[in-house]
Nucleic acid binder design. Structure first.
Lengths: 237, 237
DNA sequence: GTCCGTCTGTTCGCCAGGGCACACTCGCCA
DNA sequence: TGGCGAGTGTGCCCTGGCGAACAGACGGAC
């Protein structure tokens, strides 16, 4: 856990920009550590900063009155928060909270807007990411409507594991239940079955993925679909 | 039904453009009649034409294997289909089908792309609409997860009625069930209760809204929320 | 008028998941 | 070392909605 892993300390969306563009953008960014369950954005609130996660993971959630927030999308080192600036909108469309701890690259909204003006390549990348995010939203919504808890849990763990670079995940059954829109004990049961099958191991708010292939066989087809959507747009995983 | 109503024969997204821009765009459009349950776009398929509904209504649906498509968003005279071109993406993110019959203004994708290049105002409008659509997606997803059938049905009827300009809606319980992601007889029961309360009247594939206030009291808060989201962006209903 | 297909009404069994409650246990802290 | 609180295991009853099946009813086609 303390030794450095293969997890990149950079952001993939930035990395695939032309070198000069990426350097220019990075020069305006500074790294910030975020903590677990921190609210990074409220729905409808102004975008003050744009965040490019490196080791951090961000969840996009939708809320309706009287219920806990439901996860609609996940942002890790492959994406960004605040992309709506590239639509000329200065508000966040949804709520965003952090998963676990980690680092993001932060750039003030005015600086980012200026770089968007100056770099067609950057604008193209952000626009492409917005499209992928929209596809992910639709996929997740249909998944929540039709797939059962265990399949959704498996998919969620895989998506988190992808973005955490093999680090143990820091989250409780209660938190997981919120993300999936189910009650806590439903998660306890599904997670218990996965632990029995040696797919994961967990204890008091820490989950370790043991068998990705095993999880993939439990997960619904929404997991490969989400990866394919990203690949179609950016040509890499 | 044959007499012309207050329903505008134009598209609101076009109307709120600067006059010259709107004229230029309209000149490149030609009206097309669409029929009930016609597939206008498949998920991932190329965008050949951009459509601006005037009297037609389009549903955006998400699919997962083995289940019928689930509605994620609705496009009427306030919106457009094919907005992803403004993200530089030539594919549709989701499936799109028609509701009832009606007219759309159609413009070939290359022509539209060129107009986007030439008109910052048009690009701004389309980008803003994309943002609203994203908000609507999130809202709908949370609504599907948490709200019960009758509330969602009421919301859906209100949204359709808004876009149909008071015309009777042409759709069956089966079709409605697909949109809401529930089975046909669940719709029959919910719709039957609404008919008992004189909120709607229906017969063999035709539904007439009788009392909007009544429906609004049954619908969940997602209905006013969706309207507010549009107003925030465009300053009108 | 007769036929037939579509749309609607209704029922029955079934189950995933909700809501709630309570017990246990691990790790932390006084 | 004892207490405490968060996290987890487990049980209960209940409900909304599913799946499937069948019957009636309306409307268009012939």
């Amino acid at each position: 856990m303390s030794k450095s892993t293969e997890q990149p300390a950079t952001n993939q969306l930035i990395d695939q920009l032309p070198a000069a563009t990426a350097r220019y953008l990075m020069a305006a960014c500074h790294p910030v550590d975020v903590e677990f369950d921190q609210v990074l954005a409220e729905a409808g609130a102004p975008v003050y900063n744009v965040l490019f996660p490196t080791t951090a993971i961000i969840s996009i959630t939708a809320e309706v009155g009287g219920h806990r927030p439901l996860e609609m999308g996940m942002i890790g080192f492959e994406g960004m928060l605040g992309a709506s600036l590239a639509l000329g909108v200065e508000r966040h469309p949804m709520r965003a909270i952090t998963q676990g701890t980690g680092t993001v690259l932060e750039i003030p909204a005015p600086d980012f807007r200026q770089q968007l003006e100056n770099s067609p390549a950057l604008k193209r990348a952000v626009h492409g990411y917005l499209f992928v995010l929209a596809e992910q939203l639709g996929q997740t919504a249909a998944c929540n409507a039709f797939h059962e808890v265990s399949a959704r849990l498996a998919r969620w763990l895989l998506m988190m594991d992808d973005r955490a670079g093999g680090q143990p995940l820091v989250l409780t059954h209660l938190f997981l239940g919120d993300m999936l829109g189910v009650r806590r004990s439903a998660v306890t049961i599904a997670a218990g079955q996965m632990q029995d099958k040696q797919l994961i191991r967990y204890s008091r708010g820490h989950i370790q993925v043991l068998s990705r292939p095993g999880l993939e066989s439990v997960a619904c087809e929404c997991y490969p679909a989400a990866i394919a959507a990203y690949q179609r747009q950016f040509g890499c995983a």
